[in-house]
Design a protein around this nucleic acid. Structure first.
Lengths: 178, 178
DNA sequence: TTGACAATACCGTCCAGACGGTACAGTTAC
DNA sequence: GTAACTGTACCGTCTGGACGGTATTGTCAA
């Protein structure tokens, strides 16, 4: 029965995100996560020695995933701005709201520091590639706004409108804008 | 000692927002709020019969405050778009992060429905006043992005950059943009 | 090659404390 | 007298985390 599973960490992280989504960001208990992951509470605590570590792991895994996707796209020749717009738009189209971010926030706002740093690094990289900083800011914040609406569950745009907006932002970012 | 105070509700609501800000959105306990408001727990529960009612009141008070400010500005002759930009920019400049919104989210995501409805109404009103919907969407979402960065505590822009961005958004909204 | 030990990866239980909420008797301003 | 509380005591539940086990897989000297 106690066959070691190498992917326990990933399963637990995925379970945590699911529990946050389904039972609300404030109801993320270790018991619920362990049960969802098919792991005992002791097993969970073995992989993440405290709830704080679990939340930090949750945040880190999502940040790393996004950065990896971005770097792969750039390595594959896609311009950074384009990759950023595409990946963020894709995140907005997923129907899983990212409730994990609110769980982390509820536990301790400091846990979101990796996200904040990631955003700062990203904006710096974008600035370095873009001639018109003001236009870049417009594009960047509009995209972040779209994402935040998604996070808060505010269904405010039709799919068409969203597509229209993202295309317009691409134009602006490409220098054919403002 | 037990002098009835007519403004208990407001004091409790303000205390709740402060506690959320200072001890984290997830640590909003009735005891802490009551103590902070200088009210007994019984007194708190007299005004808000449950924690859910308290959170709903917290959300409602903030939404109503913003809507009132907006309506006053419009009644005073300021164009809606301009008032929206100004008030939102002012909210971003305050140094109180609005942690109450995360407390409500942690308690139950449904509690944010009044906020979502408010945003939808606002966007509809803005659409009705603006000839170019795409430009409006760019402005609206950029502003929401700026606000969300504030909410998440991501210090990403200098005061100058923020000012520059908001001015640019005013231009676009005024039709001299994209 | 085998026996001793150690490390890994868990399981299952238990517990102290926190929290939401109730109950109720007393107090004071109007 | 009533509305608006205060203060205290209490209850049931939930939760994080500590702890003691257990099975499996190395490691390594004799």
């Amino acid at each position: 029965m106690s066959i070691p599973r190498a992917n326990s960490r990933e399963r637990i992280l995925a379970a945590a995100a699911e529990v946050a989504r389904e039972t609300g960001p404030g109801s993320l208990s270790l018991d619920a996560v362990a049960h969802r992951a098919g792991v005992s509470k002791g097993g969970l605590l073995y992989n993440f020695p405290s709830k704080a570590k679990l939340m930090q792991g949750l945040v880190a895994s999502h940040v790393e995933e996004f950065e990896q996707l971005l770097d792969e796209a750039v390595a594959g020749g896609e311009p950074l701005v384009s990759a950023y717009l595409r990946l963020t738009a894709e995140a907005c189209e997923k129907d899983e709201p990212a409730a994990w971010i609110f769980s982390a926030m509820a536990e301790d706002p400091d846990f979101l520091e990796p996200v904040n740093q990631h955003r700062r690094r990203l904006l710096d990289r974008l600035k370095a590639e873009t001639p018109n900083v003001t236009d870049l800011l417009v594009v960047f914040f509009a995209m972040e706004g779209l994402l935040s609406m998604k996070l808060f569950g505010t269904a405010i745009l039709s799919a068409d409108e969203r597509k229209m907006l993202v295309e317009r932002l691409s134009q602006i970012a490409g220098g054919r804008g403002v």
